[in-house]
Design a binder for these strands. Structure first.
Lengths: 195, 195
DNA sequence: TTCTCCCATTGATCTACATCAACGCATTTC
DNA sequence: GAAATGCGTTGATGTAGATCAATGGGAGAA
């Protein structure tokens, strides 16, 4: 159950066997099925979740009723609503599973205890946050400066196998901030260009 | 010189007098003039900067030559290119001053030493990162889901005095991801609505 | 099997915003 | 003081992408 988590830890910070043992005790394993919510708008985000298996997304629904996907989380990624988790305010986001998933949940108290017992996790979580911030800034600048076609091409180029395989097209559109119709037309354009 | 910095520290983590004394030794005070660069595209970001006085911005220039502002940094804010600072890669961003400014610079070595000597700064920087991430995600979702007029109204509503006073209009446009012409028209629209 | 329902596609039309160009005003530069 | 430069405004026109509507195919439920 914890293989992937430990592997990820090892990439950033080395852990001894005792530390692994100890750290694993702070996590709550949980399986959820496709379409099931991990977090619903209005609830408080009590956990950050590490994805051992499966695929989740976080998204928000705007005043006009359309969904905007904030993040996908594949195996080895973390997902949560940082704001709600941090402040205890009710969340404006939803998190649900696109595929049956196995998660490792960390509550805030567990996280704090873990940081106290094994301080080098401070470093680990700081690195995670920095990477998220860098990626989100890049995505923001892209959305402000590039065309939908450019954004889609770059996205698919980044993960050519997994993304189109595992994520339905209308969700990619939502992630890119365009309508499914527009994405369909863009794909047609691109396929014509290639030939 | 360090008043504002210590005040900000105190808001998140308490510091003793010795800790203040010690922590201040890690910073390099620096004054820069309006229009002067703190970081130029292609250089490596060696510092994170705390703004004691004045106003800076970070921005990037796209393939077509237009500027996209990533962040403004008023008094009490931090600014840097996290990616370059972290990896040592040359930066794709520029940082310059919109007003004469007084800064406190922290190099990576200094930061590491400071974290080692006063570990509660881990917490402080983690909070900073979390807040940046939350704000950037919100801005991203706004840019994907709201009209330029909505984004401008909300931005001005957030800081009605400082923003339009201290930031030239074409830079607000760049921050919002629209052209100066469009912003001008939006402002006209809004002023007509009010009357 | 048949009946839904959901999803991707395609066409026709609409609209928010960009682009290009010109002008007036203020500020800086010589 | 004249000249140059930069910024905000306004108008005319172009375009990426949204919206609305219809169609066909595939997956799951009865």
């Amino acid at each position: 159950m914890f293989e992937l988590l430990f592997q990820k830890f090892d990439e950033k910070i080395g852990l001894t066997e005792e530390e692994k043992e100890l750290s694993s005790s702070f996590f709550i394993p949980k399986k959820i099925r496709k379409k099931q919510y991990l977090l619903q708008e209005g609830d408080v985000s009590k956990y950050v979740a590490f994805v051992e298996k499966g695929l989740l997304r976080s998204y928000t629904i705007d005043d006009k009723g359309s969904e905007h996907i904030i993040q996908f989380a594949f195996e080895g990624w973390w997902i949560s609503d940082q704001f709600s988790y941090l402040t205890g305010e009710p969340s404006e986001y939803n998190i649900d599973a696109l595929e049956d998933a196995e998660l490792l949940l960390l509550t805030k108290q567990a996280e704090e205890q873990m940081l106290e017992r094994i301080p080098k996790f401070e470093r680990y979580f700081r690195i995670l946050l920095q990477n998220s911030l860098i990626a989100t800034q890049k995505r923001l600048i892209n959305s402000l400066s590039k065309s939908a076609e450019e954004r889609y091409s770059e996205l698919v180029q980044a993960c050519p196998e997994t993304l189109p395989q595992r994520i339905p097209q209308h969700m990619l559109a939502s992630y890119l901030g365009i309508t499914p119709e527009t994405l369909s037309r863009i794909r047609k354009q691109l396929s014509l260009k290639k030939v």
